[in-house]
Structures are given as structure tokens and as C-alpha cells.
Simulated assay, not measured.
Amino acid sequence: MLIRALIVLLVVLNLGAAAWWLTRPAPTPPAEPALPAGVARLQLVHEAPSMSTQAPVSQARDAVSPVALGTCFSLGPYTSEAAANQARQTLGAQLLRAQLREAPATSANGYQVVMPPAASLEEAQAIAARIGAAGFDDFLVVRQGEQANGIALGRYRSREAAERRVADLQAGGFAALLQPVGRAGTSLWWLDAGAAEGADGAAMARRASSGAPQPLECAALR
């Protein structure tokens, strides 16, 4: 009887131990040791982000390079910032870069009214003929110098008289300009412009009611 009781006790103890082993809670994993400052944790292969989740490569290298300036020049002078800005708008996309520049006028006293140089002497003479036919007098085709093939339309002591002359000519369809040639400190405005290689600066000057285009270093354009 004693042996049977011992056997039964052993069986009960084994069953209890097995039940405890099966029902015990999962052990808590040990905490990861703290890493020194500046040291990154190693990643396993399966922990690394896939290629599809990585940030896209910068597109900066695909940016289009700016168009190189082939020729640069200054147009003007204009008697106001508004007139210079109007010239820039007139030329529009023909200019790759443009900026306005203010400069003091220092020369002989007075104001002159002019027509910008034409493409040829013949064209200038034809314009002069139309001016005369429209009833205007006191004009002269310029044959030499920077304003060659331009038309001088009078010189005045007062700005008001010169402005009236310009207004009358413009009302008659002629692109007359007022140019200060006196009074130190009078402001003039220039349009510093850059265009593509082979651009016709003289043709642009005529469109923009400017005198002959003045050469300009392209580095001067910001």
C-alpha cells in the first residue's frame, strides 16, 4: 500500500509541474543597454526600409541651366522710370534679362526732342518726310555720331516746352523722345538688357524708343 501511495504522489507532482510549466507567463525580455551618445543602433536586414519607402532622390540635378546671355547693352536714356519700364515691357520676351538703372544727367543746359536712329539714312529721310507732311517743322536728320540716322526735333530751355513738343509728335504717330541735356542732378533712366546671341540691338532700340544701344558688360546684369 505504501508503494502505491508513493507512485500516486509522484504522478500528482509531475502533473502539477507540467500544468505550471504550460500556464506560466512569458518571461519579460531584458531591456536593451543604453548606447553611448552619437552611436547608432545596428539594424538587422529585415528592419531596413525597403527601396519603395525611401525618400525620392533630389531633382536639383535635373534643373534646366539658365540661358547664356549672348549680347548685353543699355537702352535709353529715358526721362522717367515709367518710360524705361514701358520699354522693358515693349521688348518683353526678346530680353533674357533686364533691369532699370537711374543715373544723374550732367551736360549742357536744356532739353532736346529726338527720334531714335533708323536702320538706314534712307529710312530716316522717309520718316522726316512724313513728319514734314504731318505739319511739323524744325527737324533735322542726324548724319554723324552716335545718333546718326536719328532725327533732331528741337532743343528747348524749359522742360514744359519740350514735353509739349513730344506730346504733339506722339499724338501724330511719331515715337519722339525727350532727352535732358542740362541741369546737373536731373535723373535719367536706362534699361540694361541682355539678349541671345545674334540679337539685333539696334532694332530693339527702335522698338523701345531708345537712342543707339550702348555696349554693356553682361556681368553687370544681376
Results as ranks from 00 to 15, higher is better:
A195E: 01
R159E: 09
A68C: 01
A152Q: 02
L221Q: 02
V8E: 09
R88E: 10
A103W: 06
V113H: 08
L216Y: 03
T28G: 04
L13K: 00
Q43R: 15
A55V: 12
F73P: 00
Y156T: 07
R41Y: 00
G110V: 04
T106Q: 10
A108N: 04
F136R: 08
G173T: 12
Y78L: 09
V8P: 07
Q214P: 04
A126R: 05
S210M: 05
L221N: 04
E122H: 00
A82L: 13
T23W: 14
S120M: 03
S210L: 00
L10F: 12
E217V: 06
A87H: 02
G135K: 09
A55W: 03
A5G: 08
Q99N: 05
S65W: 01
P66Y: 08
A105R: 14
P77S: 06
L191S: 03
L140W: 14
H46S: 13
L188M: 12
R130D: 12
A176M: 10
I3L: 07
M115P: 02
A105Q: 14
A26V: 04
P27M: 06
I151D: 02
N149C: 04
L121A: 11
L100K: 00
A17K: 12
A40I: 05
G173D: 08
A19V: 11
S74E: 09
